[in-house]
Amino acid sequence: MAAYTITDINNILKGELIGHTDQHIDGPEELLNAKCNHITFIGSNKYAKLWAESKACAAIINNNLTVEPSDNRALIKVKNADLAMAKLLELFNPETPGFETDIHPTAVIDKTATIGNSCKIGANCYVGKNVVLGNHVILYPNVCVFDETTIGNNSIVWSGTVIRERCIIGSYCIFHTNVSIGADGFGYRPSDNGKGLVKIPQIGNVIIGDYVEIGANSCVDRAKFSSTIIGNGCKIDNLVQIAHNSVMGQFCIMAGHSGLAGSVTLGDGVIIGGSASIKDHTTIESGATVGAGSGVMNNVKAGETVLGYPAQNARDMLKQWVAVRRFMKNQ
């Protein structure tokens, strides 16, 4: 792994260098786990007090914090330590697994498929009829892309992912291991005689915009009719469920174990906390936030934060929790 001087790193981050260290830095690390060859990060006063205990030779800190350098230990002050950390992690990011051949001989590619320039297709992949891969698409081993699906330029699909028929995937997307795109939506109705369930055919597809990232073992189901839609720039964590006919606006975030039931609509910039559940046919307007573990049963207004089960306005819910706590203390 490459090593850098504190000056090299500050030239990349363009921060304010305070103090100096002659130690070469060969990686980032958490404050209390860092060694003398590490750089660390301080984003709040909660962690600033741990600087004195840390063995790191340098730290990237928010410029509104009061932290002092020490002997052979330097600070780089920046506007946002989290964003600076992202730049630094790119610098130390190891190379991804390579390909000995662009298209592995065990890959099965239908003769009607269109493969763009400089694509890489790993061992045991399947690419179906009339599939279109844009330029620089990477399919890691054991990916299946079924008939009439389109994947845009520079998208990366990791092993075990299955993309069902007729899906439309944008450019610069990343699908991590074992993602399911375009499986049947969950639709059943009781039979006329009341003795069984009738499966509702799901004949739509999934449309995913550009720069979308979907975490491992997450599922995006195809629509009953029309399309399940994920807008540009959405980021979806591991183990997330997005049901049939849901529509996500641009730059939404869904944390792990959260889920949208059928026909949910999210505006732009909506944040869904971990393990939150959204009832079917619910609309959450742009800029709203759903707290972790919440259950949304009704529409949420733009910019509102909701908490609880069932979810309510965050301030109202916190007042209720305080009232209940006081009541319990007085019993």
Rank of each mutant, 00 (worst) to 15 (best):
I9L: 12
N10F: 01
G15W: 11
I18G: 00
E29F: 07
L32S: 02
L32W: 08
K35G: 15
C36L: 09
N37F: 08
I42V: 15
I42A: 03
G43E: 13
K49P: 01
A52E: 15
S54E: 12
K55C: 14
K55D: 06
C57G: 12
A58F: 07
A59F: 09
N62Y: 01
S70L: 05
L75N: 06
A81G: 04
M85H: 00
M85W: 05
A86R: 04
E90R: 09
E95K: 15
T96L: 14
E100F: 10
T101M: 10
I103R: 08
I109E: 09
I109S: 07
K111H: 12
N124L: 12
V132P: 03
L133K: 10
H136M: 02
Y140W: 11
P141E: 10
N142C: 03
V143M: 05
S155I: 05
V162I: 15
R164N: 02
I169S: 00
S171Q: 13
C173S: 04
F175S: 07
H176Q: 15
N178L: 01
V179S: 04
G182V: 06
Y188Q: 10
G194E: 06
I214Y: 01
A216C: 11
D221C: 04
D221L: 08
R222C: 12
F225S: 09
I229H: 02
G231L: 09
N232P: 09
N232D: 15
V247H: 11
I253L: 05
M254E: 09
G259K: 09
A261N: 03
V270K: 03
H281S: 09
E285Q: 14
G291L: 03
G291A: 12
E304T: 04
E304K: 12
G308I: 07
Y309W: 11
A314D: 05
D316G: 06
M317N: 11
Q320G: 07
A323H: 14
V324I: 15
